[in-house]
Design a protein around this nucleic acid. Structure first.
Ligand SMILES: [Mn+2]
Ligand SMILES: [Mn+2]
Ligand SMILES: [Zn+2]
Ligand SMILES: [Zn+2]
Lengths: 130, 130
DNA sequence: TTATTAATGCGACTATGTTGCAATAATAAA
DNA sequence: TTTATTATTGCAACATAGTCGCATTAATAA
C-alpha cells in the first residue's frame, strides 16, 4: 500500500520536527494551524510508525507520544534510548543515552519503552528562582 | 489516615504474592475468588502504591500493572529495575536487572518506568517445539 | 455497646484510542 | 486532459481503562 502526500500529513510532520519533542495527539492538535480530525491524526502517526519515521512512547500517564528522532538516519530509526518526561512542563524528550540491559537467557527482545520521570532543567531552575 | 484490614485487601495481596508477577486490575479480578468491585480493586492497588507495598508499571498497551517485589525489604521498596512483558502470554515480570542511566545536568529524577517487550523463555520454547 | 470513619459498591463520568463507512482527493492510467 | 483507482479523511459510534461522588457497610477505637 503506497503512501500519498497530503497537507495534513505534511503539517503533522512539521509540528513534530519543529518541536523536537515527543508529542501526543492532543498536543499536536493544539499546535497545528489547520483543521484536522482527531482520528486522522492518530492514523497519520500510526502510519509514520509503520514506516519507521517516528516512534511511539507510552508514558506513565498511559498516553501515547510520538517522536521523530533527529539523530536517526533515514534508513535506520533508533528507539533504544531513554526518554525524559518532565512532570512540571509535561514535555517528553528523547535522551541521547542508549538503554543498556540484558535479559534472562532464552528471552527474546523486540522493543523497549523506557521513560524517566522528573523535572527538567528549565523547570527546576524556575522553582529555584521563585 | 490509618489503614484497616479487610478481606478484599487481603485477597488482592494474596493474588499478587502468589502470581509473583505484575498484574492488571482485570487480571486480578479474574483470579480472585471473592466478589469485588472494579473500582475497589483500583483503590486497593493505589493504596498499596502509596504505602510502598507495590509499584505500578505502565506497559506499552497503556495499561497499569501492579507488582509486589519479593526482593524488596519491608522498609525500602525498589522499583528501579527493568520489567519484561511477554507479547505472547501477556505476563509482566520484574527483572533483577537494575536500570543504569544518567540524565543531562540539571535534571531531577523522581521515577522510572522501563519495560522491555518480547517473548519470554517459556513461550519461545513452545514456538520452537511446534 | 456505641461512635468514628476507612473501605466498599454502584453508577456516572472522563479520557484515550480505534473502527466502520461514506465522501474526498492524490495519483495512476487512458 | 480526462477518467479510474484507491489512499486518505471526517464523522459518529464504539471500546476500554481508570477515576470520582455518594450513600452504605463494616473495621477499629472509645
Ligand atoms: Mn527518540
Ligand atoms: Mn518490581
Ligand atoms: Zn519541564
Ligand atoms: Zn510468555
Amino acid at each position: 500500500m503506497q503512501r500519498r502526500k497530503t497537507p495534513t500529513k505534511e503539517a503533522v510532520l512539521k509540528i513534530l520536527k519543529d518541536s523536537g519533542r515527543a508529542m501526543s495527539q492532543e498536543g499536536i492538535e493544539s499546535e497545528i494551524n489547520i483543521e484536522i480530525n482527531r482520528a486522522t491524526i492518530y492514523r497519520i502517526l500510526n502510519r509514520f510508525c509503520e514506516d519507521g519515521l517516528v516512534h511511539k512512547i507510552v508514558a506513565e500517564d498511559g498516553k501515547q507520544y510520538f517522536a521523530l528522532c533527529l539523530n536517526c538516519s533515514e534508513k535506520k530509526h533508533r528507539d533504544n534510548h531513554f526518554h525524559f518526561r518532565c512532570l512540571s512542563c509535561q514535555s517528553i524528550e528523547c535522551l541521547e543515552e542508549p538503554v543498556n540491559f540484558s535479559v534472562p537467557a532464552g528471552y527474546q527482545v523486540t522493543s523497549l519503552n523506557c521513560v524517566i520521570s522528573g523535572v527538567c532543567k528549565d523547570c527546576y531552575q524556575h522553582t529555584r528562582l521563585s
